[in-house]
Nucleic acid binder design. Sequence first.
DNA 1: GACAAATGATACTATTGTGGTATCATTATG
DNA 2: CATAATGATACCACAATAGTATCATTTGTC
Lengths: 134, 134
Amino acid sequence: MKLITRDTDYALRAVCFIVKNKKTVSVPELVRELNIPRPFLRKILQVLSRKGIVRSFKGKGGGFTLGLPPEKIYLLDLLRIFQGPLKLNECTLNKKRCPKISNCPLSKKLSGIEKQVLRELKPITIASLIKGMA
Amino acid sequence: MKLITRDTDYALRAVCFIVKNKKTVSVPELVRELNIPRPFLRKILQVLSRKGIVRSFKGKGGGFTLGLPPEKIYLLDLLRIFQGPLKLNECTLNKKRCPKISNCPLSKKLSGIEKQVLRELKPITIASLIKGMA
DNA sequence: GACAAATGATACTATTGTGGTATCATTATG
DNA sequence: CATAATGATACCACAATAGTATCATTTGTC
Ligand code: FES
Ligand code: FES
């Protein structure tokens, strides 16, 4: 089971690379650097652009720059954009038959774990990841 | 993203029910009680049987009993049986291009999270879950 | 203005994992 | 021997993930 899917991961790499370049970065450059399949990367960047994580510039010489400072781009943001909300704990039973979540011991444990995971993910920003690479 | 898939969950419920019955429990009984699709449940129980979690008795009047005391059946066992090893942290890059895992800051963070999750999962047994339901 | 080089929008396809079904063989009890 | 159970195994359906393809639009350069 993966915590982070491919699109999230690619988004992360792309954003990191954009941070390190002061100029706008185009898809061809990113492809060259990260070798991610080009159309897939394009799709990902378009999403990031819509969400304001990056800013896009069309036309010749165009490309992408950051839309936010790297200290304000959280891994959790990317994760939620591409993977939806982090819910480790969804009851497989429909609500009718579920002996009330609040009472279910497994559910309690899983919620606890989910909280822990969130607590650890929360502080991770692009900035912190890049610093870690030094 | 689910931490626990349906088969693991069904297995868990089935095992819990078996614990509470001193006699052998047959698939029809389990279906009645848990309403899990019968052939699916059968498949799950066969796996549990092969793994020694439950013991099976063939023939008329047959069914399943526990193969281990409930304090020795770990949620993690079931999880691993049905979902493979818990690895939250698998690099999307192939080994060639991965800038060595030990150096990758994301990988480090995710490993940390994985360890935490394992630490929380480890102590959970069938016995502890049942006690929690009291 | 025409062309080239970039992104925007959107629809489609392929692969894989999950959640099941179906069938036939085997074993035990009455 | 009939019946009621499990064993083994192969198959199928659906959803999520991963990736492709196409056309429209914008912008810089000659
Ligand atoms: S049975 Fe619904 S949360 Fe446990
Ligand atoms: S790039 Fe391979 S573990 Fe981070």
